[in-house]
Amino acid sequence: MTSRIHHPIKNILILRPDRLGDVLLTLPTVRNIHTAFPDAKISYLCTKYTAEILRNYTLISDLLLYDPTIKHHHLSGIYQLSKVIADYNYDLAIHLLPRFPLALATFMAGTKYSIGSGYRWFSFLYTNRLYEHRKYNKHHEAEYNLRLAAMAGVSATPSADSYNFFHFPEKTISKVANITKSVFGSAPFIIIHPGSGSSSHDWPQSHFIELIRLLNKKGDYRVGITGTESERTLLKPFESAGIDYVNLLGQFNLEELAVLLKSAKLMVANSTGPLHLAVAMGTLVLGFYPIAPSLGPERWGPFGRPAQEHITPESGEKVENKTGHLIDMSSISPQRVFERIQQILK
């Protein structure tokens, strides 16, 4: 049974303890929730990792950190989480990631209204359920989030200013400015992010190297490579390739990376969280995506800003003969990418 949501709604919890890109694609929903309930406080349940960026989004009042492996593991951990949620006395919880422990926690906390998917065995724990399968990939991930929140009377049409509510500390801005000045001088720069955390099919490292070689030859922009400390092995082929780039791996936390991307002319990356972070910062992007419904740009591409770009294979191996999905990213040539970059930046 679905409960009719009655106003006033004064305290709202959004739940999506997920990866960076997934979380950033919920911000259009946060924006529209704020529009629908301008006097309400909005909290966000997330992981410690994504809290680094969400704490700078001014429409969010409080962050609840979720630790499913230790602190909130097993029933005792869920009970502890439910007590925290109960202390906030939320009127409405919107579960953008359907997970049993989270559904149980808001239920145990006595949250008046909770919205979630109707297609889970634990969906009875939600007071309001949306019967829509995301597995059919009919909408962009950000649109799926908006459609779920629409059950609370929130507009499902994304606002053009969804990403305009970031505010970063002056200390962070100054630190990043000093680093970029020391490594790039006054030259404009492009950020290349060759990793993806295995979230999709990657463009080959050899192609990234050849692209940097083409950019070096053109000479209009310096190149910086970003990534985590654990991705340092990705740079092995780059180190002996005789190309000019600045190694920025492991030098920035998420907050600092956001400020860095805001200063870049362009980001070139696989389908990954930092690509969506660049979009949120208003930076031009060019992302690599396979032609496959569950991984392609229609579901996971740059969202919410004009003039964002993606590029897909023109030919390649199929996932299986029946699907026709193109996942051979090597068929995207460095020359084709270089020419697209020239078009974007002209």
Rank of each mutant, 00 (worst) to 15 (best):
286 L>V: 07
286 L>T: 01
286 L>A: 05
286 L>N: 02
286 L>I: 10
287 G>S: 05
287 G>A: 06
287 G>L: 00
287 G>Y: 00
287 G>F: 02
287 G>N: 03
287 G>H: 04
288 F>S: 04
288 F>R: 04
288 F>C: 05
288 F>T: 07
288 F>Y: 08
288 F>V: 07
289 Y>C: 02
289 Y>V: 03
290 P>H: 11
290 P>L: 12
291 I>V: 15
291 I>R: 10
291 I>Q: 08
292 A>W: 05
292 A>E: 11
292 A>C: 13
292 A>H: 11
292 A>D: 06
292 A>F: 07
292 A>N: 09
293 P>Q: 05
293 P>F: 00
293 P>T: 06
293 P>L: 03
293 P>A: 05
294 S>K: 08
294 S>T: 11
294 S>G: 10
294 S>A: 13
295 L>G: 10
295 L>D: 13
295 L>N: 13
295 L>K: 15
295 L>Y: 14
296 G>W: 01
296 G>D: 03
296 G>Y: 01
296 G>C: 04
296 G>V: 00
297 P>G: 09
297 P>V: 15
297 P>N: 08
297 P>C: 10
297 P>R: 11
298 E>M: 09
298 E>C: 03
299 R>M: 03
299 R>V: 06
299 R>Y: 01
300 W>I: 01
300 W>K: 09
300 W>R: 07
300 W>H: 10
300 W>E: 04
300 W>Y: 07
300 W>M: 06
301 G>E: 04
301 G>A: 05
301 G>K: 00
301 G>M: 01
301 G>R: 00
301 G>N: 02
301 G>F: 01
302 P>H: 08
302 P>K: 08
302 P>A: 10
302 P>S: 09
303 F>Y: 15
303 F>I: 13
303 F>R: 01
303 F>D: 03
303 F>A: 08
304 G>D: 05
304 G>L: 07
304 G>C: 08
305 R>Y: 02
305 R>I: 06
305 R>A: 08
305 R>F: 04
305 R>S: 05
305 R>P: 00
305 R>V: 09
306 P>Q: 07
306 P>G: 04
306 P>A: 05
306 P>K: 03
307 A>K: 11
307 A>H: 12
307 A>F: 07
307 A>G: 09
308 Q>K: 07
308 Q>C: 09
308 Q>F: 02
308 Q>N: 06
308 Q>M: 13
309 E>W: 13
309 E>Q: 12
309 E>C: 09
309 E>N: 14
309 E>T: 14
309 E>P: 00
310 H>W: 15
310 H>G: 04
310 H>A: 12
310 H>T: 11
311 I>Q: 04
311 I>R: 05
311 I>F: 02
311 I>Y: 02
311 I>G: 01
311 I>H: 04
311 I>V: 12
311 I>A: 02
312 T>H: 00
312 T>P: 01
312 T>V: 14
312 T>E: 08
312 T>F: 01
312 T>N: 03
313 P>Y: 09
313 P>L: 10
313 P>H: 12
313 P>A: 13
313 P>E: 09
314 E>F: 12
314 E>G: 15
314 E>D: 13
314 E>P: 04
315 S>P: 04
316 G>P: 02
316 G>R: 07
316 G>T: 07
316 G>V: 06
316 G>L: 10
316 G>F: 11
316 G>D: 10
317 E>F: 15
317 E>G: 14
317 E>A: 14
318 K>E: 10
318 K>F: 15
318 K>I: 12
318 K>H: 13
